[in-house]
Structure formats: C-alpha cells, structure tokens
C-alpha cells in the first residue's frame, strides 16, 4: 500500500526498474538471436529481483527478500541456464523464418504499450489513484502481457515460445511486487516453483519434438487440423 504514497525518490526508483524491464521486453521482441533473448530475459529477472528487494526494504516486508533471492536464482540463473542448454543441444541459434520482421513486431509492441497505458489510465481514474507509480506498474504489466502474446504468435522456435510464456509471467510478477507487495508469500513461492516444473516439462517435450518430428520449429507442427 505504501507504493501509493511513496516518496519521490522511491517512486522514481520503482519507475526506473519498471521501464527498464519494459525496454528489455522490447529487446527480446526486436532480436532474433536466441542468446540475446536469453540474456535479456535473465536481465529482466534480475531487475525484478532488485525490485522485490527494494519494495521489501522500503515497505518493510522482510519475506520479499527471500522472494528476491529466489527470483534471482530461479529466473535469473537456473531458467536461462536450462534454456541455454536446450538451445545448445538443439543447435538453434536464431529464428530462421520469422512471421513478423523484428521491425514490424517492434511497431506492434509500441502500439500495445499505448493500449496498455490507456487501460491503466482508465483503471487509475476509476480508482482515484493519485500515484503515477501504480499506473506505470499496471501499464508495464499489461504491455508485457501483450508483448509476450506477440512473441508467442510471431515466433516458431519452440524455445522462443517458452520464452514468450516466461515474459508473460515476468510481467505479472513485476506488477505484483508494486501493486500487492503484501500478497502471501506462500503463493509467490509456489508460483516460482511451478514455473520451474513447467520449464522442465518443456525441456522434455522439446526433446520429444526433436526426436519424433525432427525439428524444433513449430512450423512443422501442422498435422492436426479441422
């Protein structure tokens, strides 16, 4: 709740982190090299970890330190490492045939940020929120959601689809830290854990894909129609 009447310094730190995460989402959107993707994702996760820690320090929620450490370890190190291993094993360095050129996806991404801002403004007005940080957090949350869906739709490589899913969740996590820092810790812990399981499952499925379909591009998955 303190985020609603935070001091200007605190507000600007939060804003800085939120905007930097959004920028990293654009980095992912505009690049087609898997390695850049993974690095941007890891950096985004570290930013979220820093955000958790600073919210924990300022609003005095000590449990957020634990969340911050786990976020950094899980999302910042373990998940990128697992995905990097898949990328290496599958020998897919970049998107071969993008549906959307990176430049056009950047433009669509920018449009979705404007849309997210409009929705967030609307919610802010209906809630009588004076704090710009909250509106910014909502905007970043919604636009990372939209960008994640864009990445899911416009990319074919199995690994980039998994990353798209992770961006969706990163957006929610980032928003959660600012909007509802007091959310019970159990929930956040289990969601982190859940994410790990999902990624491991994806790893297994990608191996199946490689073995049975002979490719990790979802363009080759077109047997089931109608």
């Amino acid at each position: 709740m303190t985020a609603f009447h935070a001091s200007p310094v605190v507000a600007s730190i939060f804003s800085l982190i939120a905007i930097a995460s959004l920028l990293l989402a654009f980095v992912m959107l505009g690049s087609r090299w898997m390695r850049h993707y993974l690095m941007a994702f890891a950096a985004q996760s570290w930013l979220i970890a820093i955000l958790s820690a600073s919210v924990g320090y300022i609003d005095r929620y000590p449990e957020l330190y634990v969340i911050a450490i786990l976020t950094a370890l899980f999302r910042g190190l373990l998940l990128p490492y697992l995905l990097l291993r898949i990328v290496r094993r599958m020998n897919v360095e970049r998107e071969i045939v993008p549906v959307l050129q990176p430049s056009s996806s950047l433009v669509i991404g920018a449009i979705s940020v404007v849309f997210a801002l409009a929705v967030a403004e609307h919610i802010g007005t209906s809630l009588d929120l004076s704090s710009k940080v909250v509106i910014l957090a909502l905007t970043v949350m919604l636009s990372m959601k939209l960008i994640g869906y864009l990445m899911l739709a416009a990319r074919h490589e199995a690994v980039s689809q998994v990353l798209g899913l992770l961006v969706l969740e990163n957006g929610i996590f980032l928003g959660t830290q600012i909007l509802v820092p007091g959310m019970p810790m159990l929930l956040e812990l289990v969601i982190l854990f859940d994410l790990l399981i999902v990624v491991v499952c994806f790893g297994v499925l990608v191996r199946y894909l490689m073995g049975q379909v002979g490719s990790t591009s979802t363009l080759h998955l077109r047997r089931l129609v109608g």
Partner: peptide, 19 residues
C-alpha cells in the same frame, strides 16, 4: 508425431491462456 504435436499445442495454449 501427432501426439507430440498435440501435447505441445496443449501446454503452450493452455499455459498462455492460464496466465
């Protein structure tokens, strides 16, 4: 191959939706 394709579509579509 069909089963793998179905499994992949299932987990991607449902996980994306459920976020």
């Amino acid at each position: 191959p069909e089963a793998i394709e179905a499994g992949w579509k299932y987990i991607i579509v449902v996980s994306a939706g459920i976020t």
